[in-house]
Computed example of a mutant assay.
Amino acid sequence: MKNLLTDIAGVRVGHADDAALASGVTAILFDKPAVASVDIRGGGPGTRDSSLLDPVNTVDAIHGLALSGGSAFGLEAGGGVQAWLAEQGRGFQIGAAMIPIVPGAILFDLINGGDKDWGRFPPYRDLGYAAAANATDSFALGSVGAGMGATTVNLKGGLGSASAVTPSGVRVAALAAVNAVGSITMGDSTHFWAAAFEQNNEFGGRGFPRVMMPDMHALRIKGGPAATSIENTTLAVVVTDAILTKAQAQRLAMMAQTGFAHAIYPVHAPLDGDIVFAAATGEKAIDPVVGLTELGMIAGNVIARAIARGVYEASALPFAGALPSWRDRFAK
């Protein structure tokens, strides 16, 4: 186990990003079509093909997912991932047509100091293609891919991942691109809200503070009380090797959203676009009630851990006025 999303067999992840742009794309690819659904809680989401994932709709499996910076411009990343998959002959065959199904979601990183003067067409389709081409079973965390330009209210955001195994041997893993309106740490302290779920010091081992200070529970959001623009979003993907129906995958995504509440304060705000994609590769049977409940519980835990790791592993952007990283502030 690498403590990564790719601990689920048949899943690969790739990044492509541009340091000058201060933005990027992360592609999640499935060796075989995966049953998938989605749960959206934030008040300002931006998605591609999310309606396909409703259990009442016909498409019951996907070939990949695209997570991107760039706000609405970044929705083109899914087309790049789709193009790469099509070149590999992967997708649903409909007559002579090959159609890879690649839902996706975006986060806002347009005012983080990077050069967004890209001319007529944004670069996200090409970045999506490159991210798919780069996909392997091992990948970097922090300020990479969709997490390149991500921020939180007080620290640089980034891309994190974590994995776990249920007592019955079912694997579940998560990946998160953390660009929250709120905080991942308790106030200005070194302590992560997700401390209760940390494994093996994966985000510094700082645990809980000895005393909870009043300012830790104060409202701290980007833009402060005058915040008016949608500049945020945490994007998460949870994957399991369990056998799930599309409806069960949606329930898994809903339960996994608990991890956002464990790790981000406040969460699911009007200015966030928080979303969880859930996918199942269909290798191991589970009980449809107790087994799915346990799986959803652990999925929430790994999402909380992935969110904290995304901030812990991030590096500050090299621009004047850029937010510090957690390591800049506390790992000295």
Rank of each mutant, 00 (worst) to 15 (best):
I221A: 12
T234H: 07
A83L: 14
L244W: 03
A66T: 10
S138P: 01
L29N: 03
A308Y: 02
G64F: 09
A19N: 07
G296L: 02
Q250K: 15
G296P: 04
L252N: 12
G223E: 14
T293D: 15
E76A: 15
R309L: 04
D7K: 02
G207P: 05
M212C: 10
A269I: 06
A196S: 15
G310R: 03
S71F: 04
P270K: 00
T151N: 12
L323T: 11
R206G: 03
D287C: 01
S37N: 12
V267S: 02
A261Q: 06
D18E: 14
A130M: 10
A304Y: 05
F92Y: 07
F139S: 08
T185I: 03
M212S: 12
F139G: 08
N3Q: 14
S138K: 10
A27R: 05
S37M: 12
E202I: 02
L4E: 13
P122G: 14
K156D: 02
M216Y: 13
A86D: 12
E283V: 14
W84P: 01
L67W: 06
G95H: 06
V178I: 14
I303E: 00
D117L: 11
P123I: 07
D49E: 15
R41C: 03
G223P: 13
D241S: 13
I184M: 04
H262K: 14
A304N: 11
G44H: 08
V172M: 02
Y124N: 05
I275T: 14
M98K: 12
G80T: 09
Q257F: 05
T190V: 10
R251S: 11
K246Y: 07
A135R: 09
V302F: 00
S23T: 12
G104Y: 08
G104S: 08
N57H: 14
D272K: 11
S51Y: 10
A83H: 13
A77W: 05
T152Q: 06
R220M: 09
P288D: 13
D188Q: 14
A261F: 03
S68Q: 00
E294F: 09
Q257A: 10
I230E: 10
A195I: 01
L65D: 01
I28K: 01
V59A: 11
V25R: 06
V144W: 09
Q88F: 08
P122Q: 08
T151R: 15
A72D: 04
G187K: 09
V153M: 12
I40A: 04
W84A: 14
L29H: 08
L292W: 04
